[in-house]
């Protein structure tokens, strides 16, 4: 069962923080005043670090000590990377990777 009330609150808080982060700077930092260095620094270096973390997050439940050792995840990941390097297309790479993954866990394992 879904806890509707808590779910609404989660979506609400995510929306609120998002809106504050996107609209807030325009009010807090007027065009003629410099923005705190540390904020500018973090907003530049956080994206690659956070995405790196999210990749690990997606793979967090793989058990390398037990069959099938995350073979589906690793193979599909490699296919995604290779597709991107060859086609440079975000959509195609995601499509190939996902189709292979779905095939692996539905049909092979």
């Amino acid at each position: 069962m879904i806890d509707i009330q808590h779910s609404v609150l989660i979506v609400l808080i995510i929306s609120l923080v998002t809106i504050i982060l996107r609209i807030g700077p325009a009010w807090i930092f007027p065009p003629d005043k410099p923005t705190p260095d540390i904020l500018v620094y973090l907003s530049k270096v956080m994206p690659p670090a956070v995405i790196g973390m999210l990749i690990i997050y997606c793979f967090r439940n793989i058990d390398f000590t037990q069959y099938p050792f995350g073979i589906s995840e690793i193979l599909s990941g490699i296919v995604t990377i290779t597709s991107f390097l060859i086609t440079k297309s975000t959509i195609l790479s995601i499509l190939f990777g996902t189709i292979l993954y779905m095939f692996m866990i539905q049909v092979v394992f």
């Binding site: 995840e73 599909s76 790479s93």
Partner: peptide
């Protein structure tokens, strides 16, 4: 089943673009 890999693949692609 397995459609959640779109999320993993999306992050991988964004990561490669950032690199």
């Amino acid at each position: 089943e397995g459609v959640d890999f779109t999320m993993t693949a999306l992050f991988i692609v964004i990561f490669l673009e950032q690199l």
